[in-house]
């Protein structure tokens, strides 16, 4: 694990290295294409049975059994505020690690399809645009240029911020019990 973290730090600082490319996992979600740093990703599994946790917002679809560990599954479509994600035959769950305080939290993310692993040179990564995307600006870590198009590079820690999502749940809970 220590090695992993070390290599991740190297990779993050690699942004500034001249000519150093980074690898991203590219996936599609509701007809849009996003990418997340590959060093964040643990594995990709088929979408199976998800146990719903009551009184949680739509963002948190539920929990799954990942070889004996209970892992929450997040609906990114809901997280981006665009309704709920429809599952299909190709739906996958991307298991990744995000920082939560000093710990690493394992979280699954539902995606429509996993497309490819793409290497993007540091020079081809632009800072996030101030406006023009339909996404919260702090969710975007940069815009990657590949094959003449731009791919949104997601900031996994922000998108999957445990603190933020948990507080959403708590707020929802109170109102649900209220009504």
């Amino acid at each position: 694990m220590g090695q992993l973290v070390a290599s991740r730090q190297k990779a993050t600082s690699g942004m500034t290295e001249i000519g150093g490319g980074r690898q991203f996992l590219v996936f599609s979600l509701a007809d849009e294409v996003f990418a997340i740093d590959i060093l964040r990703i643990r594995e990709i599994i088929e979408f199976g049975h998800v146990t719903t946790v009551p009184l949680m917002p739509d963002t948190v679809r539920g929990v799954i059994n990942l070889r004996g560990a209970v892992v929450p599954v997040v609906d990114l479509v809901a997280r981006f505020g665009r309704g709920q994600m429809q599952t299909n035959r190709r739906t996958c769950v991307v298991i990744l690690e995000v920082g939560h305080g000093d710990d690493l939290q394992v979280i699954g993310v539902m995606v429509d399809a996993v497309n490819e692993v793409l290497e993007i040179a540091a020079a081809d990564i632009e800072p996030p645009p101030a406006f023009g995307t339909r996404l919260r600006a702090d969710f975007i870590s940069g815009m990657g240029k590949a094959g003449g198009r731009f791919i949104i590079l997601l900031d996994a820690d922000r998108v999957l911020s445990v603190t933020e999502m948990a507080s959403l749940g708590a707020a929802l809970k109170t109102s649900a019990v209220d009504g």
């Binding site: 009551p54 009184l55 949680m56 948190v60 209970v70 445990v162 948990a166 749940g169």
Partner: peptide, 18 residues
């Protein structure tokens, strides 16, 4: 199995099992 910090605010649920 602990549900983790994401579910810390959920009422009526104390954990999970497989």
């Amino acid at each position: 199995k602990p549900l983790g910090p994401l579910f810390s605010g959920v009422a009526g649920i104390s954990g999970s099992t497989i």
